[in-house]
């Protein structure tokens, strides 16, 4: 019991997730800055930002629906934290698992976007409303490719449980190479989920100020930002578990280091995309996802089915 609580709250639970997401935010910002020929923030900047935001006044717009406005950030944070427990990190076993947890994780990861929508919509500000609508429009564009690309490896492993998937790929080394196309699709979708350039359309500063978050300030904004940071880690961990399931049998220390390398590599890729692209328009984004990304994701499924039927007996 005590150990389970330790797992949930300290390591690799909430505290670890909090710390690593701040480290990841620093890593992302510093790398982004260096790629742009800037100095970048000092290592404690994300933590300092977080603490400072916590100390600021919460301003709730008069027009806003107070309940939804206040609850949205908390929902976002909770959903992301819950999802983290079902993802195998360095061993083949997650803290909790059951057959079907893959689906649960994917749905839990959809909740933050929904809270962005609700928070923005109930702010009643024009900028927030437009941002909220854009969030949800974008959700429909990237969510299907993301789901399909993650389901493909699951089909190959013949299970709906992330832990069992990890165990399967651990006992069949090199099979993960078959899913590299899906990995690319999932990375692009993750950019959309995290609302990063080129898919930062819902927060496009020069058009709609900060989108859904325009009216948020103080503690509530801090929670939202924390949720996004954690979502980056959870997303990266999910991708690492599904698409890069190698080296899981190593000793805990080595395994932990390998896990860090994997997720930071994914975060570095996201930062790189952020550096080299301009923001797309919402119509271009939706078109891009449905015309190119979704078919590629379906191709991955087809590839895995063919492999399963003819190559792997």
């Amino acid at each position: 019991m005590g150990y389970a609580l330790f797992n949930i709250f300290i390591f690799p639970g909430f505290l670890f997730l909090g710390v690593i997401s701040l480290v990841a935010e620093y890593f992302d910002r510093k790398l982004y800055a260096r790629l742009q020929n800037r100095v970048g923030p000092p290592w404690f900047q994300p933590l300092a930002d977080f603490i400072k935001l916590l100390g600021k006044e919460d301003v709730v717009p008069e027009e806003a629906d107070k309940k939804m406005f206040n609850l949205s950030p908390v929902f976002a944070l909770t959903a992301v934290m819950t999802a983290f427990f079902y993802i195998p990190l360095w061993g083949a076993q997650a803290i909790f698992s059951f057959n079907g947890d893959l689906i649960v994780v994917l749905y839990l990861l959809t909740i933050p976007t929904l809270t962005f929508f609700l928070g923005g919509w109930y702010s009643r500000s024009l900028f927030s409303t437009i941002g909220a609508v854009r969030s949800i429009t974008q959700l429909f564009a990237y969510e299907i490719p993301l789901f399909v690309s993650i389901l493909a490896p699951a089909m190959l492993a013949n299970t709906w449980s992330l832990s069992e998937m990890a165990a399967y790929y651990n006992s069949h080394p090199w099979f993960w190479l078959a899913n590299l196309i899906g990995f690319g699709v999932a990375l692009i979708s993750l950019l959309g989920k995290l609302e990063r350039v080129p898919f930062d359309i819902p927060e496009a500063e020069t058009e709609i100020v900060a989108g859904s978050f325009t009216e948020y300030s103080g503690r509530l904004l801090a929670y939202f930002r924390m949720a996004i940071d954690m979502e980056a880690i959870v997303g990266a961990s999910l991708l690492a578990a599904v698409f890069l399931p190698f080296g899981l049998g190593l000793s805990p220390v080595l395994g932990f280091i390998l896990y860090l390398i994997k997720i930071f590599a994914i975060i570095a890729l996201l930062a790189l995309f952020r550096t080299v692209f301009a923001r797309l328009r919402i119509d271009q984004m939706v078109e891009f996802c449905w015309k190119y990304i979704a078919p590629i994701a379906f191709f991955q499924v087809l590839l895995d089915l063919v492999l399963k039927a003819f190559v792997i007996r």
Binding site: L35, Q36, V197, P198, T206, V276, F277, A278
Partner: peptide
């Protein structure tokens, strides 16, 4: 122009 279309890298380079 880079900033307006969300391409901040161009902003940083050209302003440097």
């Amino acid at each position: 122009a880079g900033h307006e279309i969300g391409f901040d890298t161009l902003l940083m380079y050209s302003w440097r």
